[in-house]
Amino acid sequence: MKSMTGYAARDADGRRWELRSVNARGLDLRLRLPEVPGLEPAARAALSGVVARGNLTLSLRLGEGEGGAVPRLDPDALAAALAVIAEVQAAAEAAGQLLAPQSATDILSVRGVYETRPATDGLTLAELQADLTDLIAAFDADRAREGAGLRQVLADQIAEIADLTERAAHLAEARADHMAETFRAALARLRDAQIDEAKLAQDIAALAIKADITEEIDRLRLHVTAARDLLTTKGPVGRKLDFLTQEFNREANTLCSKANMAEMTTLGLALKAVIDRLREQVQNVE
């Protein structure tokens, strides 16, 4: 299990990579990359191969200047400039003339020797892809670390749901006696009324069937088992867990509506509270 939220950064030879993600229903990639042929499609393919869901932002900053421009020294241009200066000085000396010595600033001012150029000059796609591979590996490790903690939180909440479900199942036996007493009291109040006893018996039986919560308890147990299985499943499980939380909530609502007993209502509300916390945490799962 991995979290949809994660972060990683990498510095390499003046390049600053950052990759971060937050929750999203699907996969949304936002790339802020310099103009290097093939880099954007390569980045999209690499990220899509690792991440299934989330809002991801990948950025690469080159150099310190605006637009990724950096000052660079051209060794070839410098060697050529020094050779020309030496040739000129030799010719001047042969002619009996003495030239003023050239400072480093003078040499650097020669066009082409030291200029601000696009930071992408000299960069290869293979070099950037190697950076990206390391960045994504660190990012994925961060998501896995957070996912491990998230798995434990979900396991604890599912265990709480299981416990409340079993308490509701145990209370259902006492609830049956409670409902029987309620029906007997109602019959006592209607003793002097003109009632079709056969019809009354049918109505009471129908009410008892309608109020039965056995199916809700059974479905809650099945959902608990399914949720626990998902926690040990490899790959993205966030959507399936989200669906299960909706099913959990449906059964808890029905349990509350059928309660007819204060203690059962209290258990149903407790179930809803835990399920709501579970649903919030599930939104972080890939």
Results as ranks from 00 to 15, higher is better:
Gly26Ala: 10
Leu47Met: 11
Gln281Ser: 05
Ala43Gln: 05
Arg228Ser: 00
Gly147Trp: 04
Thr105Glu: 15
Ile107Tyr: 05
Ile204Arg: 11
Pro71Ala: 09
Ala168Asp: 09
Thr266Arg: 06
Ser21Cys: 08
Ile204Asp: 15
Ala262Phe: 11
Asp229Lys: 13
Leu19Ala: 07
Leu135Asn: 10
Gln152Ser: 09
Leu123Ser: 07
Ala226His: 07
Ala201Asp: 12
Ala92Trp: 12
Glu146Gly: 11
His170Val: 13
Ala193Gln: 10
Gly63Ile: 03
Asp74Ile: 01
Ala159Arg: 06
Ala119Trp: 03
Glu215Arg: 12
Ala69Ile: 13
Arg111Tyr: 02
Leu220Gly: 02
Leu154Met: 06
Val113Asp: 02
Arg191Tyr: 03
Arg191Ala: 10
Arg145Met: 01
Asp163Phe: 02
Glu18Pro: 04
Val224Trp: 02
Asp28Ala: 10
Ile275Ala: 05
Arg143Gly: 10
Ala193Lys: 13
Ala206Gln: 11
Ile209Tyr: 14
Gly122Lys: 11
Ala79Tyr: 05
Leu47Asp: 11
Ser109Met: 09
Ala172Gln: 13
Leu135Asp: 10
Asp140Asn: 09
Pro41Arg: 00
Arg10Gln: 14
Glu280Asn: 05
Glu280Thr: 08
Leu150Glu: 08
Phe243Lys: 03
Leu190Phe: 14
Asp156Glu: 15
Arg219Asp: 03
Glu166Trp: 11
Phe183Asn: 11
Lys240Gly: 11
Thr124Val: 07
Arg221Gln: 09
His223Trp: 12
Tyr114Met: 06
Thr120Gly: 03
Phe243Ile: 01
Ser109Asn: 06
